[in-house]
Amino acid sequence: MKTMLSLLLLLASQLIFAQTRVITDMAGRKVTIPVKINRILPHDEKTCLMLFPCSSGKLISRGLNPDNTDMKYIHESYRKLPITDIKNPEAVMSAAPDIIIAGCFVPEDYSRYEKLSKQTNIPLVIIDLNILKMDNSYRFLGSLLGENKETKACADFLDNFYKELSQLQKTNAKNNASAYLAVGSDGLMTAPSGSKHAQLFDLLGIRNAAETEIEARGYATVSLEQIMLWKPDYIFTVDKGGDDPYTEIYASPLWKKIPAVQKKHVFHIPEEPYNWFGNPPSINRIPGLILLSEFFYRQSQKKAHEQIKAFYRLFYKYPLSETELARLLQSKK
């Protein structure tokens, strides 16, 4: 009897082993995962956005509470995803995912993700969200999930976009204008160079007008007098609804002394379904790069619009019309 029990336990362990495989994730971590993955829990919404175009219905949650947004211009299947409190191990286990996937800016501190995996005994895989390496991330996801058709389409789009952007930077003279990122209802919070919130400026070599130090969470509070001294040529506003400073900037007589306002170079960055400059910092920033390449590298508007619509069609599974795109860009003058 004892021999039979030992044999059964051995067979069971071999069966479990046969149903798993060991992979190396994008952080270089060895992770044992199921051979067949049917239920994926994204760690947060920035990860969910990355996974959405290639998960083939395997996403079981959006991970964290969504931002306050109407969620326009994205397929309804995304909007209908339930919310799981990722900070609650019991809620995570109740969701019964096969794996958890966390989008990170490799390299970074992974301890909080690994803690969740240990608490729940659910394997956690890390993918890279660095904006100019996302083509590699989709290739990795293709290997991980076996969704090669979808992941290949995403990787190919990004690979072509990166090449076109690099060529544009080489062949087109850059507009040497400066840019200011206006945050908060008065526009007096900004993201200086080196902040993740201003990363698109840094990536494209755009001169950040905010000559100040980062204070907290990647932002700095400044005065209107400082902005007058910096004389930004472009102002981009990024907050939502009543918190967005776009209207205040054009209405204030003091802001009218700034070159960007005088030239009507103040633009509200589109935010549907997610902000093009970040929040969350994921695949949604690609349209931001497209927009800035039009402003600062003289990309043709027609080409930029084609790229944005192709992006929405592939990554948000939404056929953005010219009318809808015009609505998104309504502050673009």
Rank of each mutant, 00 (worst) to 15 (best):
K87C: 14
N88A: 01
R79D: 09
A95K: 08
K87E: 15
M93N: 09
I99G: 06
E90K: 05
V106F: 06
R79F: 08
C104H: 14
P97D: 03
E90H: 03
F105N: 03
I86A: 05
V92D: 05
F105V: 04
E90Q: 07
T84P: 07
P82N: 07
S77N: 13
P82G: 04
D98Y: 03
A95E: 11
L81G: 11
R79N: 12
I83E: 15
R79M: 05
I83S: 13
N88H: 04
A91N: 12
I86T: 09
Y78F: 12
A102N: 08
A102M: 09
I100M: 03
C104P: 00
D98I: 07
I100T: 03
P89A: 03
I99S: 06
D98P: 09
K87R: 15
S94V: 12
I83D: 13
V92P: 08
I83F: 15
K87H: 15
S94L: 14
T84S: 03
A95N: 10
D98E: 07
G103P: 03
Y78V: 06
L81D: 11
C104Y: 14
A102Y: 06
A91W: 09
N88T: 03
D85N: 15
P89C: 01
A91H: 12
S94A: 15
P82A: 04
D98M: 06
A96T: 12
P89E: 01
S77C: 07
N88F: 02
R79C: 10
P89L: 03
G103C: 01
A91T: 11
K80M: 11
P89M: 01
A95I: 11
V106C: 03
P97S: 01
I99M: 06
F105Y: 10
P97L: 00
A91P: 08
Y78M: 05
I99F: 08
P89N: 02
C104S: 14
D98A: 04
K80Q: 14
K87P: 11
I101L: 01
V106Y: 04
D98Q: 06
S77L: 09
A96K: 13
Y78H: 06
E90G: 00
C104T: 13
A96Y: 08
A102K: 08
F105W: 11
I83Y: 15
Y78W: 10
M93E: 10
N88V: 02
A102H: 04
A96N: 12
K87F: 15
E90V: 08
I86G: 08
I86Q: 05
A96Q: 12
K87T: 15
K80T: 13
S77T: 15
P97I: 03
P89D: 02
A95H: 07
L81N: 10
A96V: 12
K87S: 15
N88P: 02
S77Y: 08
R79V: 13
S94W: 09
I99D: 05
I100S: 04
P97T: 02
I101H: 00
S94H: 13
D85A: 10
G103D: 00
E90P: 00
K80W: 02
A91R: 11
V92G: 02
M93L: 12
R79K: 12
V92K: 03
K80V: 10
R79L: 05
S77A: 13
I101V: 01
G103S: 02
I83H: 14
D85M: 08
I101A: 00
N88I: 06
S94C: 09
A95P: 12
R79T: 14
M93Y: 09
K80S: 14
I100L: 04
Y78S: 07
I86K: 01
A91L: 10
R79A: 11
P89Q: 02
A102L: 07
